[in-house]
Design a protein around this nucleic acid. Sequence first.
DNA 1: GCCGTTTTCGGCCCGACTGTTTTCAGTCG
Length: 580
Amino acid sequence: MVNQEIARIFNEIADLLEIKGDNPFRIRAYRRAAQNIDGLPKDVAHLSEKELIEIPGIGQDLAGKIERYISTGKIEGYEDLKKEVPEGLAVLLTVPGLGPKTAQLLSSKLHIKDIAELEALAREHRLSGLPGIKDKTEENILKGIEMIKRGKERLPLGRVLPVANELLSLLREKAPLQGLALAGSLRRWKETIKDIDILATSGEPEKAMNAFVHLPMVKDVLMKGPTKSSVLITEGIQVDLRVVERESFGAALAYFTGSKEHNIRLREMAVKAGLKINEYGIFRESDNKRLGGEKEEDVYRLLGLPYIPPELREDRGEIEAALKGTLPRLLEIEDIMGDLHVHTKRSDGSHSLDELIKAARDRGYKYIAVTDHTKGLGIARGLNEEKILEEIEEIKAVNKKLRGFRLLTGAEVDIRSDYTLDLPDEVLKQLDFVAASVHSGFRQSREQITKRLVSAIRNPFVSVIAHPTGRLIGERDAYEVDLEGVFREAKDAGKAIEINAYPLRLDINDVYAKKAKEMGIPIAISTDTHVLNQFDFMEYGVSIGRRGWLEKSDVINTMGTENLLKWLKKARSAGGHRRS
DNA sequence: GCCGTTTTCGGCCCGACTGTTTTCAGTCG
């Protein structure tokens, strides 16, 4: 999509304007526009000017710039701006702690053009002596460069959350802190995380901060104050701890949870209502009287809004919905009745049916679908026709003995590069549940891969498309695919789309989940469990669903067993008509 | 550059920490 390209250019324009010292609100406008275009599930190339202006943060001017970029490939002013700012200078802004003012200074005095030069000069202590720069600043610049070299700025949620929870329990044990809570993008369940934000109250903040910066995994202390400290831990993750008074805890939690854009919107509303919101509370502007802040709900209540769950706080329309009273009633983990993507040791899973049944029942589930890989996936010991039929027989036998729980016969069939499935219809039609997914040929063209998914959807026996984009967060990009086109087909054929809850997948993501909901496509949230404790991944999937504004009724595995089986049957007959 | 049931012009969120500073600018979130 051209969206990401435009977002990149708008962000670069913001960088360049920042170095020039331009109007900060203009800079903010470019960044906001970039963010909203980036997160848009529609290709801006296909939008009219009127539709562009409906995107928050896009006005007459930027809409025109986008339109002309689509037709001419150029964004006016951008080239001129690049000429005004020395080549490569914007790159310096990627060094943490180094902002536009310092970049400008380094460029004008020392003509530094890239990070390599900056590093060399800092090592030779040639930066010291510039106005406002001494040894310590030099040291911090080198530290910042080290952080860049260490690589990835954002880590997958699934890698960070376990570390964060471990940190919490350690802090509970070692520091005089109360009410410890995760905040920031972790609390919003964003799919990648830049740092771990922790909020707490304490009667002895100084002592608590000391305990924090001396935790065993702390590698470096970035800053340390009485109410806020930041450290770098061994995994290379930054951890911020903020300590506030109890009466401010709710306001601080709202502030520290973000997103920044959501908070800005709230604070703007507050100003208009004669209020002031900061991390200490909600105050009346006229006499600074505290109106609330102990509970997070206070913030929303005093603005006349219903409580907005953290997963929605991205300034993607949740404030408008709250004002109109149309916030979704979000899906809860307790709504999930079963898992529709589970592997056994017959293919590449690790457990028997009995072990899986017990684990699922322990979670209160009513059913699981057994979806072993099929023969196309040799590497995962995929099952051939004979073995699948064998498994069906075994499941039928097990089901006869079960009370209040049901195994669905199923498979995760491979969608081959030649647009066919790797099991014949005669076998598929004997299964309760068929997930179809792509495991190879990722480099095919957008048209080819889209056609593969569409062909699978048009097979009457397919129930759901699993991990529809094939991405592995931080490891492998999604293949090129027209998901919107795939969604339209799924809508016509009455099929579901999966949110794969495996933490490195989270596929489809929140933005497309919202899109699917808007298009009326049923969603299955499934864990792709290979080992028992991976059933716990459901929490990640539900959170992606919540970030996508999903309600219980949008998700098929919130249905009871009978209703689900009915739905599956209907998906078959609906799909059958579309057979091509 | 965006945006408006108080505005089509004049606003635009708010505070902590650091380093280099005699009172604050820069950066970050």
